[in-house]
Design a protein around this nucleic acid. Structure first.
Lengths: 343, 343
DNA sequence: ATTATAGTTGTAATCGATTACATTTACCAT
DNA sequence: ATGGTAAATGTAATCGATTACAACTATAAT
């Protein structure tokens, strides 16, 4: 029995089990170094007393937090949720937990994020946001050491952080080739933000594929979006102002594609009758949209799992700083109902 | 200039500014108790040395973490993202940060979540998941004190935790009344999980409204879902096996409604021609769906803001345990394209 | 001039674990 | 029996801040 009114500390457990605090500590973190019999006694005492380790004390002394910061550009986009699931389950298996930071919501600027994610809060960073790298690097120079960082999905060319991503060029090529095979010769692009690495990769992949098919692309057939539903709507309006319109559109992501299709529809143009549309990501709702969205599927769970695994490896052997090459996973074209032969 | 290779600690700043560590500490946390001149010197020294407070040391001593745990049933549902935005911005204004826990992804069971969210990790809890309350209470008895908890959206009848929610009964009534006004007399329900407080509230609101309109509801017109797209699909299939079918469906949430509409469509039944459908939540995509979804709008940002504010108040005056009554916000019916007069 | 008071600042104990190092125990080979 | 080695455990320093309390200063009131 414990005396009431005080949360038990490690000394209480030690006393109860008849051992030293060191032994209790070891039982909890390196059980294999403690004799079976002692271990049992300690665990019993810990359970009886309702002991919970004080995490602040632990990380103050051990210089580890057990927390990984995950930077997400926009939690509102469902694309990220399955990646997060992969990250979370992989980290949980190692006893690590996730501190999620929405770099869009976060009321503040990059410098704040770095101030926030200092090494007394997290042991490492998984960034799904490629735009933060330069600042991260700066901060790394300013303070003692750089936090181990792995980029997932997005990446940054400067600073050779390890990264796991998808073959965006291949994705674009699959999309364009599909449209070309259907007979489209006038293909437009709803690009993502032009400062985003994904957008840039997908754009250059698309342009390459268009060129390879010996097609031309009019500058007026390219529109800029910010990956949001709303920017798809805007793109539709811009598209319809054109005299000479493309017959097919390849979109930066599914949300943009849905916004686009939705607005085209409201303006009396139908997909795929009047326009073919291809998205990117295969978010959950893509298959349930009407018409169901033709899109590029990404192995989202795997991206999260592998990214987390890469970070774990960096955390475990801090010594080796061998700059791992970026890992790249393949994508797949999912043909549904938003693409057809041109009218 | 600092010597390299060592991250500066509070003593370094103190030395640099020519004051004691106590003064540095106070400058950083209670500036008003420090003379202007001293304050300036300390801040200058802190900046020059690139000092970052060690959060583990701080919370070990101060017994506060500055972190609020947010329990989310399913991050993959976009419904939550705007609530989270409201929570995050409100907490950030007070220097508090968010530790997000997806109670669905979390590989483990409630007892784990509580073990995880112990008071050395968070100062309080915002729960968007009503199912956890009983366990929370148990844990509160087992350990020293209960973590201050506020429920947002969902709630629990046991244990009078403060909560902020939406008028679910009113939402159901608005939906049903709308369908009745259109002339529907055979109204079916796609309910959420029957152990969920939201589902129960919405169901009883709907039944009351149906009764008030002097209509009957056949048991076979009620279907159970789990708020997912997939369960909407399943509901459509069940619905179509019926001989005597309702002409309108009120769904537990928008995702279910979209799954339902999508599958009805694939089976050759159209909305709103063959069936009228009303959702609940007004997620971002609702207005961009084809047909655009008639639904019940919730003040999501406000839910998050007020919930966070309520928790902040509890954290600030720990003394007053006056059990605040649940706050309830109104909802709105948004009429779009999925409802029409019965055929 | 003296005392009271409020405003600043410093000293040093403290939060609760981990872990380097020392010590003891157990076991085996000689 | 003896020495050597490995395994298990204990002692006490340590992580880096916060804060109770003491001490000092400046100003106002008497």
């Amino acid at each position: 029995m414990m005396e009431e009114g005080r949360t038990p500390k490690i000394v209480d457990v030690a006393r109860l089990a008849g051992v030293s605090t060191a032994t209790v500590s070891r039982t909890l973190s390196k059980p294999e170094t403690v004799a079976q019999k002692t271990r049992d006694a300690v665990l019993k005492a810990a359970k009886e007393s309702g002991y919970r380790v004080n995490l602040s004390a632990r990380s103050l002394r051990s210089r580890r937090t057990g927390v990984v910061g995950v930077l997400v550009p926009n939690l509102g986009n469902t694309f990220f949720s399955r990646i997060l699931a992969g990250i979370e389950s992989t980290l949980a298996r190692k006893g690590l937990s996730v501190l999620m930071v929405d770099t869009m919501h976060q009321t503040t600027k990059p410098e704040f994020i770095l101030d926030y994610l200092n090494d007394s809060r997290v042991d490492g960073i998984l960034s799904l946001d490629g735009s933060l790298s330069p600042t991260l690097l700066q901060a790394g120079q300013a303070t003692a050491g750089l936090l181990p960082t792995v980029f997932v999905c997005e990446w940054h060319d400067q600073g050779n952080h390890p990264s796991i991503r998808v073959d965006n060029l291949q994705g674009s090529a699959l999309a364009i080739d599909h449209l070309v095979a259907l007979g489209h010769t006038k293909i437009g692009l709803i690009n993502g933000p032009l400062d985003n690495v994904l957008s840039k990769a997908r754009l250059s992949g698309a342009l390459a594929a268009i060129k390879k098919a010996n097609l031309k692309i009019d500058d007026s057939w390219q529109f800029e979006s910010d990956f949001s539903l709303q920017s798809g709507v805007a793109a539709a309006d811009s598209l319809l102002t054109l005299q000479d319109r493309p017959t097919a559109l390849f979109c930066a992501n599914d949300e943009t594609a849905i916004g686009l299709i939705s607005q085209l529809h409201r303006r009396g143009f139908y997909v795929p009758k009047d326009f073919s549309v291809v998205g990117f990501d295969d978010i959950d709702i893509a298959r349930h949209y009407l018409p169901a969205l033709t899109t590029i599927w990404q192995p989202r769970m795997e991206l999260g799992e592998i990214g987390a695994q890469m970070l774990i490896e960096r955390l475990e052997n801090k010594a080796s700083h061998t700059p791992q090459p970026a890992k790249v996973l393949p994508v797949e074209l999912i043909i549904r109902e938003t693409t057809a032969k041109p009218a």
